[in-house]
Nucleic acid binder design. Structure first.
Lengths: 204, 204
DNA sequence: ATGTCAACGGCACGTGCCGTACCGATAGGG
DNA sequence: CCCTATCGGTACGGCACGTGCCGTTGACAT
């Protein structure tokens, strides 16, 4: 009889997360208020507070509910190309709404909410980092990567500059940047004995 | 006659920034309210709003007013050692209050306040990055760095992973990490023709 | 010494959102 | 077909925001 017929719990959970993403795109995720989400979703505030302990927790679930295309590495015998390909895909995903702004807001939240920080790491950062480490391990086993390399260190070297550009510089990350970046990583910063090719600008 | 005799404008500016740092250390910079700062500093809210357009602007000025030791690069003929030394100093500075939490809070603010982001870059990030680029340029001129290397790219490669550890991983950055990190950067991730030494773990 | 004026501390206001509590309605499981 | 957990809605006290006003104060020029 009511215009919005009562739905089961799972339906509401989904509706709230969908509304969170929508409303966040309209007014910006940092400005989102629980009140506004509840009003827009046609839901009592209690129904939100019962499910999520903080705005950050809601944002994280909303992000993960987006089921964007899984980013998985290729496993060709060209690690460098595989890393570049993956990075291009990740950059593209982060470049536009809703994923980019959501991740940005979540990382900001994580700076002052340890619980959000822990969950973000566990459910978003670590899975991506894990895939990267796995890819690097394979490369190492196949002799395509320096053998005495701590893989976690390698992971943060591969990831760090991209996060730096995303969070600090906050300017669009070009394909050229990604290409040059990985080229430089593999070649190293030391000058080579002159025989070798250019250190960067070696697009594939 | 009043217990707090009137002071000149500059005095108040300084008092407010000092109170900001103090109170922030006690209750955390994200929880800081203008009201609380004004009350603690014995100052009207207007006096704060007249000087700073946002909490982020106040935090940034407060940070820069700390006149911590200037971090300047050494210019020996060992770039790698100079970079490590500088990184160690920076990590140490960021590891403990008030600088670390302040920078963290500012970067969080910068994620949803473009004005803070711009000022933070201009007055904090860029100066440090500039020194790094300058040091790298010298190294390049002296042949200690691969000659065809975009210096801005090199800068973000050197900085990124440290910010990544600081903001995302949020675990203390050890001296060993910094040492391994720069060792890896200069050696490159490609396997070497077996002749060369280990890629990492080469403490000086 | 006196006058001027901008800046000041203090206070109050309206607004927005927080997180909680209570209500009557309702739907699903026993 | 009833029972009970969950629901939407509403109201609440509390806090901080940013602004406006008021009477005071102190630096500076006269």
């Amino acid at each position: 009889m009511t215009s919005t017929p009562r739905r089961r719990g799972a339906d509401r959970t989904e509706a709230i997360m969908r509304t969170t993403v929508e409303l966040g795109q309209e007014i910006g995720y940092p400005k989102l208020s629980i009140e506004a989400i509840a009003a827009r979703a046609g839901v009592g505030k209690h129904t939100i507070y019962r499910r999520w302990s903080s705005k950050g927790a809601l944002l994280l679930d909303s992000l993960l509910s987006l089921d964007e295309p899984e980013l998985d590495f290729s496993y060709t015998d060209d690690v460098l190309a595989d890393l570049r390909e993956q990075a291009h895909a990740a950059v593209e995903l982060l470049a536009r709404p809703p994923v980019g702004p959501l991740v940005q807001a979540l990382i900001a939240e994580a700076q002052h909410d340890p619980q959000v920080a822990a969950e973000l790491k566990e459910r978003f950062i670590n899975p991506m980092a894990g895939k990267l480490v796995k890819r690097l391990r394979t490369a190492q086993e196949q002799g395509h990567l320096s053998p005495d390399f701590d893989l976690d260190l390698a992971m943060s070297i591969c990831s760090g500059p991209l996060y730096f550009q995303f969070l600090i510089i906050q300017e669009p990350i070009t394909r050229e940047y990604v290409n040059d970046f990985f080229g430089a990583l593999f070649t190293g910063m030391s000058p080579r004995p002159a025989a070798r090719g250019k250190a960067v600008r070696q697009d594939r």
